[in-house]
Each structure stands twice: as C-alpha cells, then as structure tokens.
Amino acid sequence: MDDKRRRARVQGAWAGKAKVTAHIGPTVFVNTGKPLGWGHDHVIPDKQFVYKEPTEVVRKIPDPRVIDKPGTYEISTSASGVSRLRLFPSFIEPKEGEWMFEQLYREIPWRQKSNVGPDGPYQEPRLTCWYGEVPYTYSSSTMQANPHWHPLLTMLKDRIEEVTAYSFNSLLCNLYRHDKDSIDWHSDNEPDLGKNPIIASLSFGETRVFQMRKKPPPEEQGDYTYVERVHVPLDGGTLLIMEGATQSDWQHRVPKEYHDRRPRINLTFRTMFPVTKT
C-alpha cells in the first residue's frame, strides 16, 4: 500500500511539471513557418551580409575644362540657348602684338573706376577706358563715352569684324598692371547690351587665365560649388568670342595671382543698344 502511494506521488509530481512547462515555453517562428517550442530543435537561420546603397550621395567637385586650342566650343545648352566660345590663338602675331601693346599702354587715357558694392564704394583693381557712342553703367557707376577712337583700336575692330562677321560699336579697355590686378565674377548682361550679346575679347601682353563658371540651377540656391567650369589661358594676341547664351548662363573672371606678372591689356568689343527711358 505504501509503495502504491509513493508511486502515485512521483507520477503526480512529473505530471504537474509537464503540465506547467507545456504552456511556458516560448514560440519561435523561423523560415519554415512552423512554430517551435520546448521539445523541438531550435533552428538558427544563417546570417548574411546585405549591401545597402548609401543614403547620401557623395558629390564631387568637377575639374575645370581647359580650352586652349583653336576652334568653336559649345560649352552648354539650356532653355536660354547654346553657350558658345570661339578661340583664335595668335590672331595677332607676336611681333605685331608687341608694338601694339606698347602703343596702347602709352596712349590710351587709362583711369581707375570707382564702383559701389555691398560694403560701400571701392576702386577697381585695374585701369580702364570706355569707347563708344553712349555711357556704360555697371556696378552702380557710369563710365562716360569717349567717341574719339584711337586709330589702332579702329583698325583692330575692323579686323575682328572681318573675321567674325559681327559688328561692334563700343569697347571696354582693361589694363592689368600686375598679378594683383583682377576682375571678379560677373556676366556682361547689362540691359544696354541686349539679349545674348556677342563679346569679342582680344588680349595683349602677359598670359592670364580667363575662368568661367556655369550659373547653378534654382534648387542649388546660388551655390556654385558643383557647377561646371571652363579655363581659357589667354596669351598675347589671342582672340576669344563669347556667343549665344554665354552671358545668360555663365559668369567669368580674371582672378588675382600670387607670383609676378607683367602688364596685360584686354580689349572687349561689344554692341550697345541704348535703352530708351520713358
């Protein structure tokens, strides 16, 4: 009798444990879709590396495109039209260019123009002279027209018009005296120049790099960091023509440099269409 009672107590204890553990074991779902609990083999799925594209696109600042060979170059196309450069190295032969430079350096009535910028008045870091039929206003100050063209300037204008088939009635002369003389980023897009103006730029003297940058799209909010750029080394005697939408879609400059540079003269021929004020 005692043996029966003892066996009953042992069986009852195991039965109780089995009844409890049947409900407390966790349920795990694996790739087979079958639930696993206590009393089943626990399968651990293999870990695999999954490549994910970076959430932020890494942008690279583009290298400038260097244009130094003769030819016609379409540098961009937009709703404004095609921006085009035409380069004529050695448009003026070196020996001819030397005496032309000396004559222009001595005989043009150079002066330093005062402008007005965001920080107030300042003097341009170069000397200039304006020839034409009407005054020329930029950077909040006006250059009075000099209608008496130097004979050499008239001869150069005629030669450029013959080669390019364009006509010009105005000329801005620039004298860069040394490496610290410069002109900052800008476009030649004043209203008096009309839509898509043609600018013919003829250089004498020291080589300076003419830099261009494309205006950024609206979503860039004026940030020029990632825009296209063009560099054109302008040797003495080189003629550069800017056509089409270049002034609408691009800016240009001649930056300061930090090593000795001899003087340079740049002549920029253009056509003025005076705006009638009512």
Rank of each mutant, 00 (worst) to 15 (best):
V57T: 12
T137M: 05
P70M: 10
P70A: 08
L87Q: 03
R59M: 12
R126N: 06
P109H: 11
G237Y: 00
T278W: 02
M272Q: 09
G37I: 05
S170F: 10
P125Q: 08
S114Q: 15
S139Q: 00
P191Q: 09
G117N: 01
E257A: 05
K277A: 05
S187H: 04
T246W: 00
H186T: 03
Y224R: 05
L202I: 00
A8M: 13
P191R: 08
E243S: 12
H150M: 03
G222R: 00
T154D: 05
E257F: 02
P191D: 10
G237A: 01
I160W: 02
L152H: 05
I108H: 01
D188L: 01
E228G: 02
L171W: 09
K47T: 15
Q247L: 04
A165L: 07
S76I: 02
L267G: 03
T207G: 04
D181L: 08
V116Y: 15
K195L: 13
R84K: 15
E228Q: 14
L239P: 06
K4E: 14
R126Y: 00
V10L: 06
Y138H: 06
I67H: 01
R262N: 15
V232I: 11
P125K: 04
E133P: 06
Q144D: 13
G81W: 12
G33E: 01
L153H: 08
Y224G: 07
Y166W: 02
T142Y: 03
H42T: 13
A8E: 13
A200P: 03
Y51I: 12
P151D: 07
A245K: 10
R126A: 00
G237F: 09
V43L: 10
R229A: 04
F101Q: 06
R59G: 02
N266I: 11
A200K: 11
V232N: 01
E162M: 09
I44N: 15
I183Q: 05
D235T: 10
E93W: 07
G244S: 06
P274D: 09
D260A: 13
D223S: 09
L36G: 00
L156Q: 06
G12N: 15
V10E: 08
G132N: 09
S78Q: 13
E93L: 14
N31M: 13
G25W: 07
T276H: 13
I75T: 02
W110C: 02
A79D: 14
Y51C: 12
S80Q: 11
I241V: 13
E161L: 01
G33N: 07
W14A: 12
G132R: 01
H186G: 05
W185D: 07
L104Y: 10
S90L: 14
D2C: 14
S203M: 06
T154S: 08
Q103F: 07
M212A: 01
K95L: 14
C129M: 04
R264C: 09
D119Q: 15
